[in-house]
Amino acid sequence: MADRIDGNEVASEIRSALADSVERLADADERPTLATVLMSPDPASETYVSMKQRDCEELGIQTRDIELELDAPASDLFDVIAELNGDPDVNAILVQSPVPDHVDYREVIERIDPEKDVDGFHPENIGRLVAGYPRYKPCTPHGIQKLLEAEGVDTEGKDAVVVGRSRIVGKPMANLFIQKAPGGNATTTVCHSRTDNLAEKTRQADILVAAAGVPEFIDGSMVSEGTVVIDVGINRVDADTEKGYELVGDVDFESVEPQVDAITPVPGGVGPMTRAMLLYNTVKATSRQSGIDVELP
Rank of each mutant, 00 (worst) to 15 (best):
N85T: 04
F121P: 03
L148Q: 01
K158H: 01
G157P: 01
F78V: 03
D154M: 09
H102I: 13
I168Q: 06
P138D: 05
T140G: 03
D104Q: 02
V108M: 11
K158E: 15
Y136K: 00
A174E: 03
P100A: 04
I178D: 05
S166H: 03
K171N: 08
V161C: 10
V108F: 06
Q179K: 14
H142N: 10
Q96N: 12
R135S: 00
Y136T: 03
G157M: 03
E115Q: 12
P138E: 03
I144Y: 00
E110L: 02
D79Y: 05
I126S: 13
F121H: 08
F78I: 08
S97E: 13
D117L: 03
A160I: 07
P100Q: 13
S166L: 06
P123C: 06
V90D: 11
R128Q: 10
G164C: 07
A150T: 06
N91D: 15
P100Y: 07
F121T: 09
Q96G: 12
H142W: 11
D159R: 14
L77E: 05
M173D: 10
E156Q: 11
P114K: 06
G120I: 09
L176V: 00
D71K: 09
P123H: 07
A160P: 02
A82K: 14
A82F: 05
L77F: 02
F177R: 01
R128M: 07
G132T: 08
D71G: 03
E110I: 00
Y133K: 13
E107N: 09
A131C: 10
E149H: 08
H102W: 10
D71W: 01
G120F: 01
K158T: 15
I93N: 08
V99T: 14
D154S: 15
Y105N: 13
L94F: 00
I93S: 01
P98W: 04
V163P: 03
D76C: 10
F78L: 15
P88F: 08
I93H: 06
D119Q: 01
R167I: 15
N125F: 04
C139V: 12
N91Q: 12
D79H: 08
D76H: 13
S166W: 04
A131H: 12
F78R: 02
A131S: 14
